[in-house]
Amino acid sequence: MIATLWWVLLIGATLIFLFVAGLIVWAWRRPPGEVSERRFVVWLGLAFPITVLVALLGYGLVVGERLLPRAGPEVVEVRAEARQWEWRFGYADAPGRETENLLHIPAARPVDVAITSIDVIHSFWVPRLAGKLDAVPGHVNVLRIEADRPGRYEGLSAEFNGVGYRDHRFTVIAHDAEGWQTFLQGETP
């Protein structure tokens, strides 16, 4: 969905850019003489951007709304706690279980990650699964992620956090249903 959004944005932006560039070339070659101020300022300056922006905003809002976490029986809850320069993960379905720099989730099920930090501000980002959300000390932010199929996904800290920033990463492992049960029972699959 975000990929589609990106292509819409890119194609739209390219068209607008070419339009403006063409207009400048036209303005340059046109013989001097009065032109309609109304046409430039009111139609091109006001009406044109307002139309484009309203359409775009509506589209962005719909996409954003669909990405929001919603309650449901299928939803798995995990906890991510950041510190300089490490991630610790906890699991609602396996109390007491804690993993470092390795987040286990079931594939094909929505997962809510409750993100927080115990020192400075960090940001939780798994580029292939969802956008990023900050880990702010004292606050808990919830991010909905979902992996379509089992596998390993790279995770990153995406908020500058000092000298260890570059290597502040983690890995997300998405299990199939069987592997997820094995993990919850305390074995490392």
């Binding site: 403006v20 046409r39 091109l44 300056g45 951007p49």
Partner: peptide
């Protein structure tokens, strides 16, 4: 973006009348 566009197109309009 709207007031920015107003300025940009006014400038292009200036170019075209000059």
């Amino acid at each position: 973006a709207v007031p920015t566009a107003v300025q940009i197109f006014a400038w292009i309009g200036t170019l075209s009348k000059g």
